[in-house]
Write a protein that binds this DNA or RNA. Structure first.
Length: 877
DNA sequence: TGCTGACAAA
DNA sequence: TGGAGATTGTCAGCAT
């Protein structure tokens, strides 16, 4: 097979990477490394996919004289390179050199010309060449042996162009590319071209006349404005072509025959990559050469002796007698193919003990009931012994659960940084133990490693929580909630499956009818669920105006369809079709099945405490936090949620406008505080301030606008967003927001201070000290920064609300038990708690829950709670 | 299998 | 100059 040489246009890739990788990254001395990181990400992905035999990297080193004279001002108006990018060139060169990738830089020439020259030499040698670049001029170099790897959006997304692809994409051959660029120009390189001639026209002219020479011999065949423009800009066209023509015969030494990749000294590579702290990338580079990750770091982790059976029991007993907080990790072992036994690994200071099957469960319940222990996910472990649904008797009582002495490593890590996508022992070990978990094949060995790491992590995480000031969020709020969530998950929620079936009949009929109507109007059948096919019908066949684009074509989302519904019947029908089929597919088709699959016929969701960055919970499998309520049909789904037992009522308690009340408390804005404390209708009070009229004069229309502004403020919404949600002109929305801040000046000050504080310290925090780190505030990208600012403003409100309801949940659960309630806490939906409650307890429960929810936080505004009671969830609102 | 568009909720 | 509200979870279509 022919040798494959890759040549990278270093400047082009560094520019791309600089803009594509926006997250702030620095070396120890503060030098930015985002472009280097992006470059290497692209490099590694490319090498993985293409497996080149050798890699060369070319950089610009000036501009050749002939380009400067051909076009006056060639690259002249380009602003000087961003200093944050400039400083990264020496770093990338250092990395490349450490990997033995030749760096070519020819004084007075640009990278493109080096690419062209190497490709020409390769072709002479019969080698294959891959040219990696983001610049379009390189397409002229495509040939049977030479292909262009062009970066698309971002950096790691690429397209490969040979001659056929160039022709397909631009309608010209590679040889015609300079003429093509000469006509159409290239704004990024300051190549003027012929004004008014774009991609389509340039390609058409070249197909007809072959080249610039051919075109200018036949300008008499052209007509009108086009003829004038082309004739007038003859010099610009030829000059532009010259600038765009890549030189292919530079003279520089490069040993192509001897070049090879990967071939490098691992020590040198390690040194270079460790300097910039690209540990994950280092591992990938070393792997290319068959090298393993630095082994000395693994040794830093516990190399614990492992035992089983009676010895394991002794190990555990001794550790508990010493008062140690042992660790536990749960897994399965499958000796044969048929049976899987549960295995529990327990970590102690003297080693790891393994327990299997019934022994594992015995040990788990022992830990939960009587011993201090630690685990990555305590709730998951609890369910293994508890057990997870009410069809079997509980091995551990609710009271024992509430009293358990657990340390949840995942929750601790979440309190330290809530923006991490996944909390694993491997990542925690890397961060807090300074070593990587050894990669082991055998699942049991892996479990042992996890137990050992979990044991070792308790101390450093406890210290980190205290150092960071995040111990309150963890110890007072998140950790005590684990038992409550475990109890709720086991309790489950009940649905009326009969009723669901009736809903199914109705929905199925409606959906089929709607589909028929849509097909009839469209004149053909198609898949309405496919946005692509729907777009083809609406925009191609019916010729409706495409109002919005997405990555793959024209958008067919609800806002677009609503607008189009004015012109045609189909969009309205599709909206209704989507509403019904979404609800049918997501809830009606799945909830009864899920319930039937559980031992007790109930829905047992999983609540996640480490997913959101604000401190809210999330729910999955099934998600019971997004059960419909807004539309009539949606509410029918809530009507299927019923109390757990005959004789129970569904009780729902929710905080009224908790985020806005917290805003009043936190900002201490006098008028806002007064608006809540006077007991008046809050949205109406806002309307009265914003529109400058007495309370009695507020119309329902004004009130609903004020309500939208109130909610917008919570989310950091801006004028554009408000104008969209209210369907009013931008200017009007802008004025409303301005008047809002005039009416509540304390709010403006508070939000500004919050952002400023967050910018300085790197995080925003809630009333109870829950932090959210916001590195985006330091971003160079204005959109990212805007995101950071909105996040900083929103976190104290949304996060404090989350803290408050979590505290309330723990206390409510405690009092349910202490005061002998039969009522059960079933669900939490952000600012709402739902119970199943015997009729005779309803009064007592309502009073208790209200009292607890209102009193867990002391604020300068009352935290009002509405309690509803009814036979179903829908009725309890 | 992984990504995308669309849509449910507070 | 262009873009201009957020988060999470689930489903189906579609490309690989």
């Amino acid at each position: 097979m022919a040798k494959k040489i890759a040549v990278i246009d270093g400047n082009s890739l560094m520019h791309r990477a600089f803009h594509a990788v926006d997250s702030p990254m620095n070396t120890a001395d503060g030098t930015p490394t985002n472009a280097v990181f992006g470059f290497m990400a692209m490099f590694l992905k490319f090498v993985d996919l293409a497996h080149p035999d050798a890699v060369v990297c070319a950089f610009d080193a000036g501009i050749p004289e002939f380009r400067k004279t051909a076009i006056e001002g060639y690259k002249a108006q380009r602003p000087p390179m961003d200093p944050d990018l400039r400083v990264q060139f020496p770093i990338i060169e250092d990395l490349l050199e450490s990997m033995n990738v030749p760096v070519v830089r020819i004084s007075g020439w640009e990278g493109d010309d080096i690419l062209g020259t190497i490709a020409a030499r390769d072709e002479a040698l019969g080698y294959e060449t891959l040219l990696v670049t983001g610049d379009r001029d390189a397409f002229q170099l495509a040939s049977d042996l030479t292909r262009i790897v062009a970066t698309k959006r971002g950096i790691t997304d690429v397209a490969v162009y040979g001659p056929d692809e160039v022709l397909a994409r631009y309608g010209v051959t590679p040889a015609q590319v300079p003429d093509f660029l000469g006509l159409k120009g290239d704004s990024s390189d300051n190549i003027p071209g012929v004004p008014g001639v774009g991609e389509k026209t340039a390609a058409k002219l070249l197909r007809q006349y072959g080249s610039l020479e051919g075109l200018y011999e036949h300008t008499d065949e052209l007509k009108g404005k086009q003829k004038e423009r082309i004739e007038e800009n003859r010099d610009a066209a030829f000059g532009s072509r010259q600038v765009a023509t890549i030189v292919r015969d530079l003279d520089f030494p490069l040993d192509l025959e001897g070049a090879a990749f990967p071939s490098f000294d691992p020590e040198r590579v390690k040194a270079a990559f460790e300097k910039v702290q690209f540990n994950a990338q280092l591992a990938r580079v070393l792997k290319l050469a068959g090298e393993e990750v630095p082994p000395e770091k693994e040794a830093a982790l516990v190399d614990a002796p492992v035992c089983e059976g009676a010895q394991a029991s002794e190990l555990l007993d001794a550790a508990l007698a010493r008062g140690e907080r042992v660790s536990a990790a749960l897994g399965v072992r499958s000796p044969g193919e048929l049976f899987e036994t549960q295995v529990c690994a327990v970590g102690t200071s003297q080693g790891v003990g393994l327990f299997e099957g019934d022994e594992a469960l015995r040990v788990l319940s022992l830990l939960v009931r009587t011993a201090p222990f630690a685990a990555l996910d305590v709730k998951e472990l609890v369910h293994a012994a508890y057990p997870a649904d009410t069809s079997k008797p509980a091995v551990v009582s609710d009271a024992e659960l509430m009293a358990m002495d657990a340390f949840d490593l995942g929750l601790a890590a979440y309190a330290l940084n809530s923006s991490v996508s996944e909390y694993t022992l491997a990542k925690l070990a890397e961060k807090h133990l300074g070593g990587v978990l050894p990669e082991v094949e055998d699942p049991t060995d892996a479990l042992v490693q996890q137990a050992a790491a979990a044991f070792a992590l308790v101390e450093p995480l406890t210290r980190a929580l205290a150092d960071d000031g995040s111990d309150a969020a963890y110890f007072d709020i998140d950790l005590p909630l684990v038992a409550v969530l475990a109890i709720m998950e086991r309790t489950g929620a009940a649905i009326d499956s009969q009723r669901m079936r009736k809903l199914d009949d109705y929905a199925s009929g409606e959906i089929a009818g709607l589909a028929e109507q849509i097909y009839a109007l469209a004149g053909e059948t198609f898949n309405i669920d496919s946005p692509k096919q729907l777009a083809a019908i609406l925009f191609d066949k019916l010729g409706l105006p495409p109002l919005k684009k997405n990555q793959r074509g024209y958008s067919t989302d609800a806002t677009v369809l609503t607008e189009l519904a004015k012109d045609h019947e189909i969009p309205g029908l599709v909206i209704r079709y989507r509403e019904l089929s979404k609800i049918k597919k997501t809830y009606i088709d799945t909830l009864p099945k899920t319930a039937a699959a559980a031992g007790d016929g109930r829905l047992h969701t999983t609540f996640h405490e480490t997913v959101t960055s604000t401190g809210r919970l999330s729910s999955s499998d099934p998600n019971l936090q997004n059960i419909p309520v807004r539309t009539d049909f949606g509410r029918q789904i809530r009507d299927c949620f019923v109390p757990l037992r005959d004789g129970d009522e569904f009780v729902s308690a929710d905080y009224s406008q908790i985020e806005l009340r917290l805003l009043a408390h936190l900002s201490q804005d006098e008028k806002l505080l007064e608006a809540f404390n006077s007991g008046a209708d809050f949205h109406a009070a806002t309307a009265s301030h914003v529109f400058g009229i007495p309370l009695e004069g507020v119309t329902p229309e004004m009130r609903s606008r004020a309500k939208a502004v109130n909610f917008g403020i919570v989310y950091g919404q801006q004028a554009f967003g408000l104008s969209q949600s209210l369907g009013i002109p931008f200017q009007e929305a802008k004025e409303m927001i301005e008047r809002y801040f005039e009416a509540y000046p304390g709010v403006r000050t508070f939000l500004d201070d919050t952002v400023e504080h967050a910018r300085q310290r790197g995080f925003a925090e809630t009333m109870f000290g829950r932090k959210r780190h916001i590195p985006e505030l330091k971003s160079r990208n204005a959109n990212q920064r805007g995101f950071g600012e909105r996040t900083a403003m929103n976190h104290p409100m949304q996060g404090s609300a989350a803290d408050i309801i979590k505290k309330a949940m723990r206390e409510v659960q405690q009092r349910l038990m202490d005061e002998g309630f039969q009522a059960k806490l079933m669900l939490q939906v952000h600012d709402e708690l739902d119970f199943s409650c015997p009729t005779e307890e309803v009064e007592r429960l309502s009073a208790m829950v209200r009292e607890v929810m209102m009193s867990v936080a002391s604020c300068d505004v009352e935290l009002e709670v509405d309690v509803g009671v009814g036979p179903t969830w829908a009725d309890a609102h």
